[in-house]
């Protein structure tokens, strides 16, 4: 779907991610390994959101909530000494899916600005739920004592090593990208794109669109949940900040910045968003004053976001 240039840029970006743990210490900036890991984590959440926003046309303003559900599930289980990844991961992703299905079932009955507001309201509900969990640190957050353990019997398998978790994140991100490329070219993806393009037409052809929108919403919540699982493992710490509404907004901006409806859009968006804020923050404490106008300029003048720059002119 993307042009040759877009493909080259996307692959090169993934290669840069792959060599970063080796490259960063060499240039004396080992800290950048963490930055790039976070970029990938947010890219994954943005990828989840892009599924419904970019391909299905649903603007959810509450997707950080599902990142939070995934992260808190891992955090709370680990806090109670349950560190088996075989238990933590499916449970975390499943719970994110259940929350997304319930919230989606209600939100998807509304349209436009109401949909944005109701998804925001649901995510705020979960945010304040997390704040109210005194047992799990309220505002201060919760330490995740150990990373998910994938040992079977005597065969030890964990992701304790910092390089190991980095590459686990990278592999899962690449897998997600691949799975999504299959999905959007498949029957379900066609229906989703059709909903975005002209829902009335699709209904008039006999498609009950609600169930497809709900399935996509749930799936996108689960991808965000997966990103949350990795967050908890990577940071060793979860806090309500992860599901603050500004986080949802940032994920939204990443998708739009990178190019909604493009496979690699979220990766572009997350990379530029986080790197730019990282770099600008080095110059001045008031980096948001520069950052904001840049975002506005991109949205105004680079139609289709960064990914749109690599796209052929003949595409609508």
């Amino acid at each position: 779907m993307d042009t040759a240039v877009g493909k080259v840029v996307s692959i090169s970006l993934l290669v840069i991610f792959a060599v970063m743990p080796v490259l960063a210490p060499l240039v004396g900036e080992p800290y950048y390994v963490d930055v790039f890991a976070r970029i990938m984590l947010w890219a994954m959440a943005a990828l989840g959101l892009n599924l419904i926003l970019g391909f299905g046309g649903m603007v959810s303003f509450g997707h950080a909530a599902y990142v939070g559900v995934g992260a808190y599930t891992v955090g709370i289980l680990s806090h109670h000494g349950v560190s088996s990844g075989f238990l933590q991961w499916p449970l975390a992703i499943g719970l994110s899916g259940i929350f997304a299905a319930i919230f989606g079932a209600i939100s998807l009955r509304t349209r436009g600005i109401y949909f944005i507001m109701i998804t925001l309201a649901f995510s705020q509900m979960l945010y304040f739920l997390a704040v109210s969990l005194e047992q799990y640190g309220s505002n201060d957050g919760l330490l995740v004592p150990e990373r998910s353990d994938f040992s079977i019997g005597t065969l030890h398998a964990g992701i304790d090593d910092d390089h190991a978790i980095y590459y686990v994140i990278l592999c899962i991100l690449v897998l997600c990208l691949y799975a999504k490329s299959r999905l959007i070219a498949g029957r379900f993806g066609m229906i989703l794109k059709g909903i975005k393009s002209n829902e009335t037409r699709l209904q008039a052809l006999g498609v009950s669109t609600y169930r497809y929108r709900l399935a996509a919403f749930t799936l996108s919540g689960m991808i965000c949940g997966l990103s949350g699982v990795l967050f908890a493992n990577f940071e060793g710490f979860v806090s309500p900040d992860l599901m603050h509404w500004t986080r949802s907004g940032e994920v939204l901006i990443m998708v739009i910045l990178g190019g909604a409806g493009m496979l690699f859009g979220p990766l572009f968006g997350a990379t530029v968003f986080l790197l730019l804020s990282e770099v600008l923050a080095r110059f001045t404490d008031y980096w948001n004053i520069i950052f904001g106008p840049i975002l506005i300029l991109v949205v105004l003048y680079a139609k289709g976001g960064i990914g749109g720059l690599f796209r052929g002119r003949n595409r609508g």
């Binding site: 799975a179 299959r182 999905l183 070219a185 498949g186 029957r187 379900f188 993806g189 066609m190 229906i191 059709g194 699709l202 052809l205 006999g206 498609v207 497809y212 399935a215």
Partner: peptide
């Protein structure tokens, strides 16, 4: 072409397929 493809999909149903490209 994809307009017509989508119409056929609408008639056939079973549209949750995520893995095989319609192309």
């Amino acid at each position: 072409l994809d307009n017509a493809v989508l119409a056929i999909q609408a008639r056939e149903g079973r549209n949750f397929g995520c893995w095989s490209p319609v192309r």
